[in-house]
Nucleic acid binder design. Structure first.
Length: 297
DNA sequence: GCCAACGTTGGC
DNA sequence: GCCAACGTTGGC
């Protein structure tokens, strides 16, 4: 029904570090990906990421049903092995490869296998909770595009790129500043705007940032807290009675110190939690008929 | 249905 | 290795 004709772009994060879950190493780096060529992208256990995967369509399917042309183009985010000594960690993460969707979303069966690292008792075969797509490796980026570079660009107050990266133009800079990768890094599957895609692709093709100092040290100034502090002064916040925090963590002896910035940071947490909660709900409902959607009373 | 607490992720 | 951010769970 949506007669979209442009490809859709995504960024997916690989799992480059060894991590043993239930006795199995869950690592899946871009190297591994390149070796196998095509692979299911299993183990995504986040609603928002799952919903994004459900939007991805492989090329053939998109061509057959021309009303659905959500051809997925993927940028794969990885971490370079090795460089983590020498304090070079800041440039080890970034965009390492391109991929395409080989198979549209289908139930992630690893959630059903109690032996599997990604087992989730709440996912039933009759009613799968988690999905995966198959991805086909396309190519390495000619230049590894480090996250630190994107941050460098995003943190700059300038609208135009540094000289070395002139080719990005202001549109490229603006697009990078808006990337989820920069603004909310944790999401493991993200939408990428066409402009951001172009910018990343140009960076990957052209490079040119060798002379830039991408080290993160520059965070002398306070983040951007003041603005948010104002926003969080919400009527609701005033109503909150300052409930005593009960500490019932397993190690009840371990004493954290929450006091010092309680007054505003707590409010901020509240407002964040609320909004993310609202968002999660919306996303969860997204798969239901629109009529089911209801804003809260 | 709301919110505090928990656990995990990810940047540094 | 530490700590902030944040998604999810579970108690009410």
């Amino acid at each position: 029904m949506d007669g979209e004709t442009t490809p859709k772009y995504w960024l997916l994060k690989a799992e480059p570090d060894s991590r043993v879950v239930k006795g199995k190493d869950v690592k899946f780096s871009v190297d591994d990906f390149e070796t196998v060529g095509t692979s299911p992208w299993e183990g995504v256990r986040n609603f928002e990421a799952r919903n994004l995967m459900k939007e991805m369509q492989p090329k053939e399917k998109a061509q057959k049903h021309c009303s659905i042309t959500r051809i997925a183009r993927i940028q794969v985010y990885d971490r370079l092995a090795g460089a983590s000594d020498e304090g070079l960690t800041f440039c080890t993460q970034g965009i390492a490869a391109f991929a395409e969707v080989a198979k549209a979303a289908y139930p992630d069966h690893t959630a059903w296998d109690s032996e599997h690292p990604y087992f989730d008792a709440k996912s039933k075969q009759e009613d799968p909770k988690w999905f995966m797509v198959d991805l086909a490796f396309v190519s390495r980026t000619k230049h590894f595009v480090p996250l630190a570079l994107l941050r460098y660009i995003a943190d700059s107050s300038a609208d135009s790129p540094p000289e070395e990266l002139d080719y990005l133009g202001e549109a490229g800079v603006a697009a990078i500043k808006n990337m989820d990768l920069v603004t909310r890094g944790r999401l493991s599957i993200q939408r990428v705007s066409p402009d951001a895609w172009d910018a990343i692709e140009q960076l990957a093709d052209n490079g040119g940032w060798d002379e830039l100092d991408l080290s993160p040290k520059k965070k002398t100034t306070a983040k951007k807290a003041p603005a948010e502090r104002t926003i969080s002064a919400h009527p609701r916040a005033a109503k909150q009675k300052p409930k005593p925090r009960k500490k019932k963590a397993k190690g009840s002896d371990s004493e954290d110190d929450f006091d010092e910035d309680d007054e505003w940071s707590e409010e901020e947490v509240i407002s964040k939690t609320t909004s993310s909660r609202r968002k999660r709900k919306a996303e969860d409902y997204q798969e239901l008929p629109a009529t089911r959607r209801r804003t809260k009373a």
